[in-house]
Write a protein that binds this DNA or RNA. Sequence first.
DNA 1: GTCCACAGGGCTACCACAGCGCCAG
DNA 2: GTCTGGCGCTGTGGTAGCCCTGTGG
Length: 416
Amino acid sequence: MGYLCDFCGEQRSIVYCRSDAASLCLSCDRNVHSANALSKRHSRTLACERCNSQPAFVRCIEEKISLCQNCDWTGHCSSNTSPAHKRQAVNCYSGCPSAAELSNMWSFLLELPSVGDSTCEQGMGSMSIADDRPMDSQDPQGKDNVQDTPFLVEASEDVDKSQVWMKSLTPVIDPRFQNVDQAAGSTSSAMPKVAFCFKVFLSGAKGPAVCEDDSFYGDFSMDEVDLNIENYEELFGVACNNPEELFDNDGIDGIFGTKNMSGSNCRGAYAAEGSSVGVNVMQPAISNAASADSTISCKTEPNLCFARQTHSGISFSGLTGEISTGDYQDCGASAMLNMGEPPWYHPLGPESSMPSTSRNDAVMRYKEKKKARKFEKKVRYETRKARADVRRRVKGRFVKAGDAYDYDPLSPSRSY
DNA sequence: GTCCACAGGGCTACCACAGCGCCAG
DNA sequence: GTCTGGCGCTGTGGTAGCCCTGTGG
């Protein structure tokens, strides 16, 4: 028996919205997040099917269950029963993706029992990222929305298609990292190397050649995604040789924090390759902290970080290099910094030897950025703003025209 | 462990006034 | 039904002051 949607209270909840801190069925997810432009930007992912109070970040292929960090730890890392389970990263999304797009993103979605039920299926069928057509549009013959059929047929016939396509948009589930427990000890680098595997179909518009069925991908084109070729260069720089450039100069809020992947606000992920650091991912308490953080801080800045979560199998290939411990601590840890150490922090580990000054600098830069973002304000009336911008003040308060003032936005001079 | 002082950050009220909506004539 | 004038409300930015939290003695 699953948990019920926080919104309708009728359907089983499927996805988790960090911004709303709510578990929703697909239908309500669609309804709630199509309300306005801001809600469309909410980053959602599958809800943890175990606790249902946290966003899932991996899916256990063996158990066919989506798990949050905490439950993943509880179920896989802290027990001997299933440490070798293969797990797949769960991608997050924003906007109003179609059923096909969701099935692309989560091929295992077909396994979910409630996806096929009437309400949610309808909700999914009406989903569209571009939202450029009526929700319940039907063709003149009265057939179902074109998105529905491919979702049920194409995906079931050839799930690999969707997986291949997803690889073009998101960090790839690299088979080498599918089960890091098996690979543990196979490498010996002292410093954790970070393998970036970020396959982008620069050519184009729709998707890989293997997926030429336009109907399958419907309205989803690369034009709607930030990752076009221009953005690729923007994101990675011309040379793309330096992984550090993938992150901002402060190592905290880089492109993965501000640029969308697959149109989502989801922070990208990377995995530490090799060495023992990839095995013991986090301690239970730390995992809890991370989960708590994901609930609190990620409301405004959703992120996922798979640093050292090598079992989650995220990697970026094609760009390989080393980054400093500090940088990769900070990456994706922007929210974590508010609550102390990031979840993969090992107090006694060699990685903790990052110079405190650089870390503090990074924290300070992050806080400044966060502060700047926080005070972003949407002005409803530009005319009033323009007027207020030129109005004279005394101690911050507006004064009558002609009265003495101590602050003039147009001039540093004072009237007295 | 408890108490106190201090520092720092967050939040909010305050101000004038143009523009808007509403209502009566 | 349409137009006009009056009235009340809203929102805009910088600052002071209050409140809360964290830190050190």
